[in-house]
Structures are given as structure tokens and as C-alpha cells.
Computed example of a mutant assay.
Amino acid sequence: MPASDPVEPAARDERTAKYAPPPASDAERSAEPTLAEAIGTSLGSAARRAGIDPDAQLSTGAMVWQVIGGWRGILESTLPLLAFVITFTATRNLVLGLALSVGLAAVFTSIRLLMKSPPVAALSGLIAAVVAAGLPLFTGRAEDQFVIGFITNIAYGAAFLISALVRWPLIGIVVGFLTGEGLAWRDAPRKRRAYFWLSVAWAGLFLARLCVQLPFYFAGDVASLGTVKILMGIPFFALLLALTWIVARRLNPSGSNAGAPASEDDQAP
């Protein structure tokens, strides 16, 4: 079968080298920490602290259970909100409902501090509960207790969606720095596609929460709003985290060379 380019390989290499930019010096390469690398390093470290560590060789279920914090994490995420919803629905007493919610968050924070958890991690739940309680105390509307959650979903959803649309999907950045591959996955079309759709899926989760919960918010239906928020919280998060972990491990099998050239399958269009 005739070659598509009649130029001899040596001549073609010479022609390519003529128009190629000069290689970066060692000093220039060492001074090139890009924004993506900085974000990847930060997110990768945060993911490892949360329990997402490929080197630990955990099963999918064990990894998800570790990330959500086991039974304690489930109770911390659901009990304060559940106490607020049940108390307010039964008594219509906004202050009592918020007090119970913040009080339970304070109890869990105290337990974390007694167990020598990092102060920032221990106090984050209490701070979130206090901030969420501040708005309904100011407005007198119980449904405003969920506004901070809406803002969080908008922020995370937008971040994942925008990162996918600009071809720097957050999932790829995180996985790359977790596996030691860095940004080499951008040269593998199969990985780029997978990380693109995973990032879109995460954006879809956060935006789906908004679409389902906002009608209950505008209707002032606190009971339904709280129930839906709990159901779309840890269960949906755990399922998508498990899917992301499975796909990432299939794309980056243990023992593979990080940063190795893309395979023929990766180079397929």
C-alpha cells in the first residue's frame, strides 16, 4: 500500500525539526507549575486525606465506606437535618428545630475532637450547621435552612461542568495526581472521554439535586424538602463515587506505568 507522504523519513524529520519550537531549558521546565498542576496536587492530597487512595488497594465498597465515614459519617450527615425536619414539622417551632440541629452537630464535633480528629475536619460540620441555621433565624422561614446547600450544589455543579466543557475535567485532574500520572492522561483519548463523562455525571448529580429540591423549597414544604435532601445525599454520592472509582481503576490498573505512552486502543479516534 503506497505511503501517503512521498518524502523520505530523514527529510521529513529534518523538515519537522526546522519548524519545531526550541526545547525548553531545564530552568524553564522547573519554573512551569501550571494552574492545573497546582489544582491537581491540592485536590489529590484532599482526596487521599478523605480516603481515596489507589495505593491502599481497597475494594470499591471499602473505599466508599471509608470516604463517607462509616456509620458515624452517615449519622453526622443525616441526624442534625432529620432532627430539624421532624421537630419543626411536629411543633412548627423554628428556634427549637434549629437548636436541636446545631446541638447535635456540636455533639458530633465534640466526639471528633475527643477522638483526636484534625480540628478543621472536626469543626467543619458544626460551622456548616451554624451558618445554615443563621439564615432561617433571620428570615423566619424554615425552608431557608436549605439555602446554603443550594449554593453548594450550584458551586460544585458549575465547577464540574465548566471543567468538562473546557476539556480539563476535574475527575481527570484528581485521578491523574492520585495515580502519579499527572496530566499525561490528556494524551490518551479513551481516558479523556471517560473523565469528561464522569465530570459531567458529577455535575448532573449536583444540578439534579437543585431541580428536584427547589420546587419543594418554593412551596415551603420543609418535610418533603428534608426527605429528598437526605435521599439524594449520601446514597447518590456513594453510587457515583463507586462508579468513578471502578472506571478509574480500569483505566489505571495497579502496577501500570504512570505516564507511559498511550496504547493503540487509547489512540483510536
Rank of each mutant, 00 (worst) to 15 (best):
E28N: 08
S30V: 09
E32T: 13
E32R: 14
P33W: 04
T34Y: 07
T34H: 05
L35E: 06
L35G: 03
A36L: 15
A36H: 08
A36R: 08
A36E: 06
E37Y: 07
E37N: 10
A38G: 09
A38H: 04
G40F: 02
T41F: 01
T41K: 13
T41S: 11
L43C: 10
G44I: 01
S45Q: 14
A46M: 13
A47L: 04
A47Q: 02
R48F: 07
R49I: 14
R49L: 14
G51P: 02
I52R: 00
D53I: 10
P54M: 03
L58N: 04
S59D: 13
S59R: 11
S59A: 13
G61L: 11
A62H: 07
A62W: 02
V64M: 04
W65T: 03
W65V: 12
W65S: 03
W65R: 07
I68R: 00
G69N: 06
G69Q: 08
G70T: 04
W71C: 09
G73T: 09
G73Q: 06
G73Y: 03
L75E: 10
L75I: 09
E76N: 09
S77P: 02
T78M: 10
T78Q: 06
L79R: 04
L79N: 00
P80G: 07
L81H: 01
L82E: 01
L82S: 09
L82H: 01
A83L: 15
F84M: 01
V85G: 00
T87A: 04
T89Q: 12
T91G: 08
T91A: 03
R92V: 04
R92C: 00
R92K: 14
R92A: 09
N93V: 06
L94F: 09
L96Q: 05
G97W: 04
G97A: 01
G97M: 02
G97P: 01
L98R: 03
